[in-house]
């Protein structure tokens, strides 16, 4: 009886796993097939003769530019967010001043609001300062909109740093700047790495800001770029599949290496809200 119960439970879990993973496996399979094979054959069959040409075609079509834009914009915006969020979290949690909880409240507004409500005014602001179709608009928007979640993840860690560390540093004659950059930041490396990876995933996957603020192919990131591509390859399933695989592969690889960090960051960013 107990045995049958467990078999049932494992069946449920296995069914969920199959549901979660199968569309992705199917995607990888058809990214290596020709249309003929996709349309005529068994959808879950391995490709008889893997068509790596699909990937080659997509790179020759210019997906590399989008990929590179995604990389550098993600890295720059993540770096800025982490630095600015760390500084703000430091003053809010460690320093003594009257308005710290008010400032924290203002920063946290960003967690509740729908970004679409701010979209038209943002577009208009960037238009007025000639930043439309300029990657700078994307970078500062990403930096800003990821601040609330980053501060939230950092908050818990910063409050647990022992006072004695700061006292010792001050007795040694350290300035606040030195204390922050040479003691606090290195000390918070584990939690910083969590925020880095969460920020990178968010930035890598962002769509609506790029779609609204950027019109030149030269500045588009992968999320918007693949939209173009897919329009272009309307009926070429293999090429579409290859484009999608290229766009999700970096995240999957990151997950293989940093799954614990990613899960920690996702849990922290959700539950404390």
């Amino acid at each position: 009886m107990r045995h049958i119960g467990y078999i049932l439970l494992y069946t449920v879990l296995a069914f969920v796993a199959v549901f979660q993973i199968f569309p992705i496996i199917w995607l990888v399979l058809f990214s290596l097939k020709s249309n003929q094979e996709i349309f005529a054959g068994n959808p879950f069959a391995l490709p008889t003769d893997p068509k790596w040409d699909n990937y080659l075609k997509v790179f020759e079509g210019g997906v590399g530019t989008y990929f590179w834009n995604s990389v550098w914009i993600t890295v720059v915006a993540t770096g800025l967010t982490i630095l600015i969020a760390s500084m703000a979290t430091y003053t809010i949690t460690r320093m003594h001043w009257k308005f710290s909880s008010l400032v924290l409240g203002i920063i946290m507004i960003g967690l509740m609001i729908p970004i679409h409500s701010a979209l038209i005014p943002l577009y208009n602001m960037f238009l007025n300062v000639h930043l439309i179709d300029n990657p700078l608009s994307i970078i500062i928007t990403y930096t800003t909109y990821n601040l609330p979640i980053t501060v939230m993840i950092l908050l818990g860690f910063y409050t647990t740093i022992p006072r004695e560390i700061e006292e010792a540093a001050i007795i040694d004659g350290s300035s606040i700047h030195r204390m922050f950059f040479q003691i606090i930041l290195p000390l918070s490396a584990p939690i910083l790495s969590t925020t880095v990876i969460i920020n990178m995933i968010y930035n890598w996957n962002e769509f609506v800001f790029v779609n609204t603020f950027i019109s030149s192919d030269a500045f588009k990131t992968l999320t918007v770029g693949i939209q173009n591509f897919i329009g272009q390859y309307m009926t070429d399933w293999g090429a579409i599949g290859a484009t999608l695989v290229i766009s999700v592969l970096p995240i999957i690889i990151a997950f293989l290496f940093f799954s614990e960090k990613i899960m920690e960051g996702i849990t922290a960013s959700a539950v404390k809200g």
Binding site: I24, N205, I226, I240, S247
Partner: peptide, 22 residues
């Protein structure tokens, strides 16, 4: 298992949308 379950969450909504169109 919980790692496998989480994979779709990591993909961009655009990639998910395009995949499910297919």
């Amino acid at each position: 298992l919980r790692k496998i379950y989480l994979i779709p969450m990591l993909l961009s909504s655009v990639a998910i949308a395009q995949l499910w169109i297919k």
